[in-house]
Structure formats: structure tokens, C-alpha cells
């Protein structure tokens, strides 16, 4: 089965050889689209949702520019499968928790996903490792054009692409960049970053954590304004202004730590490695936190014997659904903590 193949390997967008990859983990662009002549999801009965699902699925599966793709029925799948796709960021919690006919078309290389009947009829997403939004935009623009020639989108010349929530109206574009900011965290500068982001109409949310709290200093930075700004301008702002600035601040913070607090830094990193190498029970929260510190240590050259790819791989493999699918059975939290610790020891020792 396809999902099993996914669970044992690293996502391509999570690879280390990419622009600014010590700080910028991945880039993603999402487009929100709806079919003309149908109600939005919240007012659809199951029959209409089924119709929409079929129309969009047929249109996307018949495209020849997508390479190897497959469809996952989310309404019919198991909870564990849905969790796996959430952990790999291929579907949203919203789609997993939804009701009625819905699904996702995924590229085998995991660089493309089309969620059907999420908040909007169609949520296209393209991913890339590192800071690579230009490439993402080119790709998703082509895919969107191709789909737009097969079906009719709900569109108004004045308001642009019409979406279920007015906050996505217009271009329907959401540009998101995942960054690792342990330096800003350790030097107590995250609050400043959040303030600046608010002024620039950006949203920042923690990743891998529950709710808004970030575990392990990973953050996703996204645009919020989708009306009155072209897609190119939004992408350009991220590529030339927003992300380079954040990267610069994070590097400065790291440099300062090396000069002023090298002992504290090395202590944090060494403790993280020691715990990960020897723990017998470890929660996913603690694992994320320690892996984050370890990742910083490797990127700052304080630890030489472990590769970033190994750490990235462990971020995925130690998450609950990944552990269970790779083990081939359901596990309770304590069994998961044991298996997580085993997985970490095996990879790091």
C-alpha cells in the first residue's frame, strides 16, 4: 500500500541540500479554489460533496503534468492514515476532521497535494525544500491553469477567486515558509519578531506543537492578505524581503550566542544528544524539543558526527502515526514512548 511506503522515508521537501536550509526548512504555496455552480462546503449535502469530489478528482487525475499521483479517500480511510498524512503535512487537521465525501490527490514524490472538500472545494499545494518559492509558484500556477481549463472556477473580475471565507478571497494564495529559529528563542527575541510580523500582515504559528505553542522552535510564516496583491508580488516579498531578514536575524543571534554564551549553548546541545542517545521512554513533545536543539548544534558546527538528514528523518519517524504505521499496529502512549526511544537510540548510536 502506498501510505506504508510513505511512512518509512523522508519527505523530499525535508531534505538538507537546499537554499538556506540550515534555517529555512521548506516552502509551500497553497491556492484556494471553488467550482462555479456549486454551494460552498458548509452548505453542501453529501450528494453535492460527492459530485464536487468526483469532478475535481477526475480533472486532476487526468492531468499529464503531475507525474506519478494517487488518490486517498479521507472519508473512508482509517484515523491512523489520516494522522500520517497530517504529520507529513499533506492534509490539514480540518480535512481529517471534516464530514462527508472528501479526499486528497498526492504526488508520489510528496511535492504536490490537492485537498478536495476541505474548507474550499479545492486546496492545491506545492512544496519545496529550503527557500524555493519561485519554483513553487511556477509549478502551482501551471497546475492551476491546467485545472482551470478543465473546470470552471468561481471567479469574479472584481473580487477574484471566490472562497468560502472572505479572508482567502482574491488570489487565494497562501505562501508559507517553515523556519527553525532556536537562536532567536534563546536570545529572547521572538516577541520582537512576532510584533514585526503583525505589522507586515504576516501570520506566524508554531509547528509540531499542539495549538499555537511551538515545540522545538519551528515556525511557519504565512501571508494573510490575498486581495489586491498579485501572487508574484506576494512571492517576491517573501523571497527578497521577509525571509532574508528573518534569516539574517537568526544568524546574528546564533553568532552572538557563540561569542557570548558558548558554554550554555554547548551544554544545551550536548544534553540533548545525551538524552536522545540513552532515553528509554520519551514523549513526542520531549523528542521534538531535544531534536530541535540537536539540529541547531549540527547546523552551527558544534556536532559533527550526525547529519541534518538523520535529524530531519527522526522528526517524522518519531511522530505517533509514523511509529504505529511502521510498526504495523496500534500502540498506546506508553508503548509509543518506548518505541520512540528505541528508534532514536538506533539512529543516533
Amino acid at each position: 500500500m502506498r501510505l506504508n511506503e510513505l511512512s518509512s522515508r523522508l519527505s523530499q521537501w525535508f531534505c538538507s541540500e537546499s537554499p538556506l536550509s540550515d534555517i529555512v526548512i521548506s516552502s509551500r504555496i497553497r491556492l484556494a479554489r471553488n467550482l462555479a455552480g456549486h454551494k460552498f462546503i458548509s452548505r453542501c449535502d453529501d450528494r453535492e460533496k460527492q459530485e464536487i469530489l468526483q469532478t475535481l478528482k477526475d480533472a486532476i487525475l487526468s492531468l499529464d503534468l503531475l507525474g506519478d499521483i494517487f488518490f486517498v479517500d479521507i472519508a473512508g480511510g482509517s484515523g491512523l492514515e489520516r494522522d500520517l498524512l497530517i504529520e507529513r503535512q499533506l492534509i490539514s487537521r480540518n480535512l481529517a476532521a471534516g464530514k462527508g465525501p472528501r479526499g486528497v490527490v498526492i504526488a508520489t514524490n510528496e511535492l504536490f497535494a490537492a485537498q478536495i472538500n476541505e474548507e474550499d472545494h479545492l486546496r492545491l499545494a506545492v512544496f519545496a525544500a529550503g527557500l524555493n518559492l519561485d519554483k513553487c509558484w511556477q509549478r502551482i500556477n501551471d497546475i492551476d491553469d491546467a485545472i482551470g481549463r478543465k473546470i470552471e472556477y468561481a471567479f469574479s473580475p472584481k473580487l477574484g477567486f471566490l472562497t468560502a471565507c472572505p479572508t482567502n478571497l482574491g488570489s487565494g494564495i497562501r505562501v508559507s515558509v517553515m523556519v527553525h529559529l532556536p537562536g532567536l528563542k534563546m536570545t529572547d527575541q521572538l516577541k520582537k519578531l512576532f510584533e514585526a510580523a503583525k505589522d507586515m500582515n504576516l501570520a506566524i504559528r508554531g509547528l509540531f506543537g499542539e495549538g499555537t505553542e511551538a515545540v522545538g522552535d519551528f515556525f511557519q510564516i504565512s501571508n494573510q492578505v490575498t486581495l489586491g496583491i498579485s501572487e508574484e508580488k506576494t512571492v517576491e516579498d517573501f523571497m527578497t524581503l521577509i525571509i532574508p531578514k528573518i534569516v539574517e536575524y537568526e544568524r546574528l543571534a546564533r553568532d552572538r550566542l557563540m561569542v557570548k554564551d558558548a558554554n550554555i549553548l554547548d551544554d544545551k546541545i550536548s544534553r540533548a544528544l545525551a538524552l536522545l542517545k540513552s532515553a528509554r521512554l520519551i514523549s513526542s513533545h520531549e523528542a521534538m524539543f531535544l531534536l530541535s536543539n540537536l539540529r541547531m548544534g549540527v547546523n552551527m558546527g558544534r556536532i559533527k558526527e550526525i547529519s541534518i538528514d538523520t535529524i530531519n528523518e527522526l522528526f517524522l519517524l518519531t511522530q505517533p502515526a509514523h511509529l504505529q504505521i511502521n510498526k504495523g499496529q496500534n500502540l498506546d502512549p506508553e508503548q509509543r514512548d518506548i518505541l520512540r526511544a528505541e528508534t532514536l537510540r538506533a539512529k543516533l548510536n
Binding site: D145, F161, P166, L169, G170, V225, I229
Partner: peptide, 18 residues
């Protein structure tokens, strides 16, 4: 819409089908 989009009220960007 104005609140959510920094005062903008008119679409700028691509149209369906390219």
C-alpha cells in the same frame, strides 16, 4: 473584506485558466 485585506477591495493577480 477591507479589514482582512489591509484596505484592499479589488482583485489583482491571475484569472482562471491563465
Amino acid at each position: 473584506i477591507e479589514k482582512a485585506h489591509d484596505g484592499n477591495l479589488t482583485h489583482k493577480g491571475k484569472i482562471p485558466g491563465g
